[in-house]
């Protein structure tokens, strides 16, 4: 396991390398420059040309890439062109917020999805099962930002029990205050995961209930509760773990839109602003961060898989 982990971690290095090259080329080969966005069209053309030259934007892209790589590897992520703030500080502020948002929406989705999946599998073709299946289809089909708008309209405007946006009230920021602000974005972001995990748990549970060892457990007279929750349920979770790796990119991608709808100041909003301002160093950092998160998420899914299923051995 240790050697496997080490190998997998080493494998992420070339992947991150590839990601950085692709993002860098796409960002830097586009027309337009950050100063045009920063100062508008009225900037003195000679000043702009001098800035471009001084910052090295006129060098060939491979040269610029190598320079970026050198400074990044030395631990310097650069500075925001717009605010002059070190990118690392901006990330340090935004990353915990986005992890808080995506983490809580994932846990929320899971907490509802798994019971729904188990119940509808144990009562296949019952009214509950049909209701759950319909609900799952609707959850997968509802665009998260539309869900967010609906949530704001109904639970912040018509029935003002939740705040419309932000991460805490100005001047506030206590635990309950943040939680209060977190509920609408986390629920609307988690809706899609909730639906797909419910469907997946159901089908995985149905598969397990058909197995011989479940029949054996029933045959030796175990209570149905014990059969379902001790023997079947735990085994049905194994394939659900694989979904974890797959659903991560969608979860983080969804956060980009949800953060914008709720003006929730995390990585998504940071990216959105960086994109609007052509803030190249911020864009590089956020894109790489998300890629790293996806890679590590997949690795985590594989490790969890090995823990849950002792038949799987990584060497």
């Amino acid at each position: 396991m240790g050697r496997y982990l080490l190998r997998r971690l080493l494998q992420t290095i070339p992947i991150l390398f590839g990601v950085s090259i692709i993002v860098f080329v796409i960002i830097h080969s586009a027309p337009g420059d950050p100063y045009a966005y920063l100062f508008g069209p009225r900037i003195d053309p000679t000043l702009r040309a001098r800035l471009m030259e001084e910052m090295g934007f006129n060098d060939p892209i491979p040269v610029q890439y190598v320079r970026w790589l050198k400074t990044t590897l030395s631990g310097n992520l650069g500075y925001s062109i717009r605010t002059q703030e070190p990118v690392i500080n901006m990330l340090a502020q935004a990353i915990p917020r986005t992890l808080l948002l995506t983490g809580s929406s994932f846990l929320f989705g899971l907490a509802i999805a798994i019971p729904i999946g188990v119940i509808s599998a144990t009562r296949q073709y019952s009214l509950i099962d049909y209701a759950a299946t319909t609900f799952a289809f609707m959850g997968i089909s509802l665009p998260s930002f539309f869900a967010a708008l609906l949530a704001i309209y109904f639970f912040a405007v018509k029935l003002p029990i939740f705040p419309m946006n932000g991460i805490h009230t100005p001047g506030g920021g206590g635990f309950w205050d943040v939680l209060h602000h977190l509920i609408l974005p986390a629920v609307t972001l988690g809706l899609r995961d909730m639906a797909s995990y419910a469907r997946f748990t159901r089908s995985s549970m149905l598969e397990v209930l058909r197995q011989d060892y479940v029949r054996t457990a029933r045959a030796k007279g175990l209570a149905e509760r014990l059969v379902i929750y001790k023997h079947a349920f735990r085994n049905s979770l194994i394939p659900v773990i694989t979904l974890f790796g797959f659903s991560l990119p969608a979860l983080f991608g969804g956060a980009v839109i949800i953060e914008q709808v709720f003006t929730f100041p995390g990585m998504g909003l940071l990216t959105f602003e960086a994109v609007n301002n052509r803030d190249y160093s911020v864009l590089m950092a956020t894109n790489l961060f998300f890629a790293l998160l996806v890679i590590l998420g997949n690795l985590l899914a594989d490790i969890l898989y090995a823990i849950a299923d002792p038949r799987i051995r990584y060497a």
């Binding site: 070339p14 992947i15 991150l16 590839g18 990601v19 692709i22 993002v23 796409i26 960002i27 586009a30 027309p31 991560l248 990119p249 969608a250 983080f252 991608g253 969804g254 980009v256 839109i257 998504g268 990216t271 959105f272 994109v275 609007n276 052509r278 864009l283 956020t286 894109n287 998300f290 890629a291 996806v294 890679i295």
Partner: peptide, 24 residues
């Protein structure tokens, strides 16, 4: 397949947003 690994590490919306915003 290594290229596939690289591209599959991008969260879709995030990178699509970057591409479309930068290229117009």
């Amino acid at each position: 397949m290594r290229l596939v690994d690289v591209i599959q590490s991008f969260p879709f919306l995030m990178f699509a947003l970057t591409i479309v915003a930068i290229r117009g």
